[in-house]
Structures are given as structure tokens and as C-alpha cells.
């Protein structure tokens, strides 16, 4: 039985190749593979401007952080980005310990993250 993680994926209005992904639950070694598959599929389909809303992400371990870094790297390689918003204090502490705050684009709110994206042309 995997730990509960749910990804709710929706369009980003006025952003080319954009998607908003709401992470809900715990991201850990039991569900990284399914999360990896879902987000990698989006990136392969060309949705490379991604905003991840962590408001309801309660927990992430080092394995989960590993795939977040992977998403960021993969999106950037395709001239896109993987931006994170609404990170809770506990999750931010783990991100900071491994120095991933210098590698991930982190915003206080989804609105700020979206505002930083390239608009639709």
C-alpha cells in the first residue's frame, strides 16, 4: 500500500505549455515512482512551464526531494521551469538541509510563481 499522494493537474491560463500541479499528501519512497511517471509524462508532452503547489504537501523525504530536483533539471533542459509554491516550514527545513533551496525555484504563493512565468505569445 503506497502512502497517499495525489496530484491534481490543471491548465495554467495565459501560460504557454503551462500546468499547475497540486501535491496533496506525503511524498516518499513508496510513491516516488508513480509521481515521477506522472510529471515526466507531462514534460514529455511539452508542458515544461510547471508550477507545483505544495500547500497540501505535508511531508517529503530525501527520495521525494530527489525527484523534485530531477523535475527542475529536466524542465530547464527543455527551456522550461519547475517552480514550487506554498512550502510548509517542515518541508522547507528538509529542502534547506540538503541545499536544494539553491537549486529549486521557490515562491511564497502560486500567484507569485505564475507571475514569474513567460506569458503566452
Amino acid at each position: 500500500m503506497d502512502t497517499q499522494i495525489e496530484l491534481q493537474i490543471s491548465e495554467l491560463e495565459n501560460v504557454s505549455h503551462g500546468k499547475l500541479i497540486k501535491f496533496m499528501g506525503d511524498l516518499d519512497a513508496t510513491n516516488v515512482e508513480s509521481t515521477l511517471d506522472q510529471v515526466t509524462k507531462l514534460i514529455k508532452e511539452g508542458f515544461v512551464q510547471i508550477v507545483a503547489d505544495f500547500r497540501n504537501l505535508r511531508y517529503v523525504n530525501s527520495t521525494g526531494l530527489g525527484i523534485l530536483l530531477h523535475f527542475s533539471k529536466t524542465a530547464k533542459e527543455k527551456n522550461g521551469c519547475f517552480k514550487i509554491a506554498n512550502v510548509n516550514d517542515n518541508v522547507y527545513e528538509i529542502i534547506e538541509i540538503i541545499g536544494a533551496n539553491t537549486l529549486l525555484d521557490i515562491y511564497d504563493s502560486v500567484e507569485e510563481a505564475i507571475a514569474s512565468l513567460a506569458p503566452r505569445r
Partner: peptide, 17 residues
Amino acid sequence: PPSSDKKKGRGLVIVQM
């Protein structure tokens, strides 16, 4: 050092901290 290339290998660093 932190890197986007590694998906694993950071767990014990977190534990230590």
C-alpha cells in the same frame, strides 16, 4: 554538494543535521 543529477543519497545527511 547538492546537485540536480542525483535522485538518492542524501538521507543520512538529513539525519545528521
